[in-house]
Structures are given as structure tokens and as C-alpha cells.
Amino acid sequence: MTAPLLRAQGLKVAYPVKGFRKPPVEIVHGVDFEIGAGETLGIVGESGSGKTTIGRAILGLAPISGGTVEYDGRDITALSARERRALSREIQVVFQDPYSSLNPSLTIGATLAEPLIVQGWDKAKATRRVLDLLDHVGLPKNAAARLPREFSGGQRQRVAIARALAPGPRLIVCDEPVSALDLSTQATVMDLFIDIQRETGVAYLFVSHDLAVVRHISHRVGVVYRGEIVEQGPTRQVTKDPEHPYTQRLLLAAPIADPTAQQQRRADRARLRAVQAEQDLQATGVPA
């Protein structure tokens, strides 16, 4: 196998704490993962687990305090501002909240053209590219002249996807991109992500709290719990036959949209909880 597109080894993220000589707070405690070209790595975890921080560290938005990140064989752990800007052609992002991820006072066209113009595209070429992008994500051409507030959540997320695609990146970090959307919108946006991947061969680091979403789009899945990846592997294995107790709990906690099957799952969950409580008791000697 050729070298992966992105490789993180022992990645740690710590935020400085305000105050004199206070030690920084570590959010991510050394995680290893790889993403191949054209592949989707799903990162699943609950709030506060550090899953979003991992994505932000790759984007250079969170301070890396240890370990290395390699992109295409090149160390990108500590880049200068100029090198990081150059990397924006390669690594892009789609955020969770389609409402705050678009500047409310810029037209869709201006938002989409910005990454192109800062890379020195001329205006006519950028305009043509913007129309292509809108078409690609299934928005009408006249959307370019309109403001974000005229669009629904799902449409805004399409704009955000178009913005990420604009420079033709090879990796997109997707931070909960469908969590704020309605059920039916969610399904169509997911399909769009998969279609784009098939057409362009872009790789995704897909961060979500929703196991069903991650299962749907990922080739491989990593489960994050308290700043560590506790389990990682092919999607089927991790989401059907998990080994780590936390993954098992997570899997059984998600309700199935089927009353009979859900009743069964609820019983399984109660049983698992009893077993794990007993194991904890044996391991620590004190009731959890």
C-alpha cells in the first residue's frame, strides 16, 4: 500500500489556561490514525470527547502540543502562517452549523469566490468556477447573488460544501456536517457527500456523534472516548461487533427506528449495563 494521505501519530492537543504559570489543559491525549486518498475515516464520540478538537488540529485551528501530523509525506505539525495558507488548496472544512458558518452579510457568490480570489484566480474564471460549484451541489445558478438568510439549513450546508470544494482539495474535514439538519435533508446531503467522493476522489475525516451517520459514510471508523481513540477499524467490524466496552454501550444506546427491535435492544442494553457494572466492581473493588 502506498503512503496514506494523512497520518497522525501520538497527536496531542492542549489549550493554554489563562493565568500565570498554569499548566495547559490537554483535550486529546495522543491519538494515531491514517486516512488514505479517497477514503472516509469516521470519528465518532460524545460531547466533550475531543472528536471535534482532532479535526480542528488537522486544520491548524487547535494548538498541537505533541505528536506529528503528516500530509502526503510532509510534516504539517507546525507550519508557518504562510505555509498553512498554501495548504488550504489541499485541506478544507465543512462545519456543523450552517447558520454561523456563512457570513450573513456576504452573498453566496462572494463567499464561494473568496478562497479562489485569495489564491490569485482572476474574477471571470472564479465566477465560472462558482457557477460550476453551485451546479455540482445542486443549487440554482441565481443563488450566487443571494444572501445566506434566503436559504434553508440544508441549502446552506450545500453552500458550505461548495466552498470546501472550491480549491479542489484532497481532504475535507467534516465536523458534524449533517447534525443540524432535518431527517430527509440529512439523507440527501449524505448522498451528496458520497457522490462527490466518488467523482473527485476526495478523502473525508468525518466527525459525528451519530453512529448511524458515520456508519453510512465511513470506510473505517475510530471511536473517541475522553480524548483517546479506544477502538478503530473497518466500519462493519466496529459498528456491528465492537470490542471496547464503551463502543458496546454507545451502540446499544442508539435507539432503532423499529418498535420491536428497539424493545430487544433496550433489554440488551440493560443486560450489558449490569455486566459492565459488575466488571467495574471486580476491577476496582468499589461500586461505580
Partner: peptide, 20 residues
Amino acid sequence: GSILDEDTIRDDSAMVLVAD
């Protein structure tokens, strides 16, 4: 029909060749 059910697991392989 829009619910992402538990049995839809992505199984097409990553498109490494096309990307290169």
C-alpha cells in the same frame, strides 16, 4: 425511508486510483 438504518454500511472501497 430517510432513516439511516443499521444495515446500510458503506462497503464500496476507497477510490485511490482515480484520485491519483
